[in-house]
Amino acid sequence: MLAKANDDGSLEKQLTTLSRPKLLIIDELGYLPFEANAAHLFFQLVSQRYERGSILITSNRSVGEWGSVFGDPVVATAILDRLLHHSTVITIRGDSYRLREKRRSGLLQKAGTTLGTNETAKQ
């Protein structure tokens, strides 16, 4: 499907579209692993926007896990290299507000998973 879309150039058009706005917000990175093609296009997107347009990413995966998200540690490293160059990384620890109510009422026992990286870094 992806390869097919790639053939008629629609993904490239999409890439151009996503390169345009001054701020691109990418929510929930890490829920779906990227197919090889998509990871490469994502790299192109990040490269095109690098030092031109801002990107805001939210992810439930620590940066160290992005290798598996993109299915290729080399691509993930190249993406992270550009993303982290001028970046603010904010790591939120703590409880889910969605689950807090349930926990209070005794439906759930304890807080869930925490992330591997806990530092809040400004690079």
């Binding site: 001054k22 990413i57 939120i92």
Partner: peptide, 25 residues
């Protein structure tokens, strides 16, 4: 944004990452 910088919000689900992203947007 004026500088073209990146911001990453990392954390488990339900900690308000999307809320912050939308509000900053």
């Amino acid at each position: 944004i004026a500088h073209g910088d990146t911001v990453l919000f990392l954390g488990p689900p339900g900690t308000g990452k999307t809320h912050l992203a939308v509000a900053l947007g």
